[in-house]
Amino acid sequence: MTSMQSMAERLSALALLTLLCAPVSAEDTAFAGRWWLELAPDLVGVLELREAGGQIVGYVEGGPIDVEITGDRIVMLVDSRDVSMRQFNRRLTGKLTDGVMAGTFTTDQVEGAPAQPVPWRATRGGGVVATAGQAPTPVNFEGVWGRPAGKDLRKYRMDTTPLAEEYVANYNPDLDQPPMRCMLPGLVAQFGYPYFLEIMQRPERILFFSEAFGEVRQIYLDGRSPPEFFPNSADGFSTGHFEGETLVVETTHLKAGIRDYRGEPVSENARITERYTLLDDGQTLYGEMTIDDPENYRQPPLRRTARKRSTESILLPYECDPDSFFRQLYREGTFDEYLKRGRWRR
């Protein structure tokens, strides 16, 4: 490293430090709160800006982003991934006007990304807004719901603890992912799975039938507690209640699992909150999941899903045979490695 490079990096670090320590101004507080973020043409996400330790910090889908606010202008750097796990950044620049943020963004490191800046905006509300304290007015969620529609930002970086980072560093997606062995991946990982979902509902209980794995989730609405010695499992123990027309589901008793493909962990002490609501005159089932798991995340990751009502399909059977996975290990000579990885497998 040359001395010039070193100096430049020190200056850059100093600028960042200055930015992070900048006092929060009245203009900054106008940015604080939850925003519904829309990136053209069809990406959506939840943005949260808040004051912490005298500075404004930002999160997208619960994962930290870099934020710079100057007067009524904002710059955000949002990291993402594609389906091949390639990471890249979107740089959003914009302005707050009459309670709406709007501007343009560019995308780096992606082949085929638009060369010209693309519009974005952020508005208050969107998704499931705060419903606590609203009188319950139960609605009927029954029906067959299609594969999750729409595209999310695939926010990559979460505010992980060293414990979580150690797990991810040792995780091998080729060998450790539960569904490859026909095992349920857990409530969190399965939230956005590309399979149909059917809901049946009674006053005291709601049943979620997932096409994937033929899984059945029971959500008790009668206020019961889990029985003594209730075993921890991939789906845990779920209770629900209505806040207004929003179904709020809280889950405990999970067994240790994963949040996503790359193996970000979910501990057995995690507490999962889901909020479901109907949109588009009952034709869209929208859900948000918050993962409170301080062992692994300093800030709860957020997941969202939107499914269109299906009137043409029923759930298809799901019979799973792990033969092809073990055959692959045999063919490619990785079976011994698989056997040694019990510590990381969930």
Partner: peptide, 9 residues
């Protein structure tokens, strides 16, 4: 298209 396990491989 969307899949239920990693295509990182």
């Amino acid at each position: 298209a969307a899949a239920h396990h990693s295509f990182a491989e």
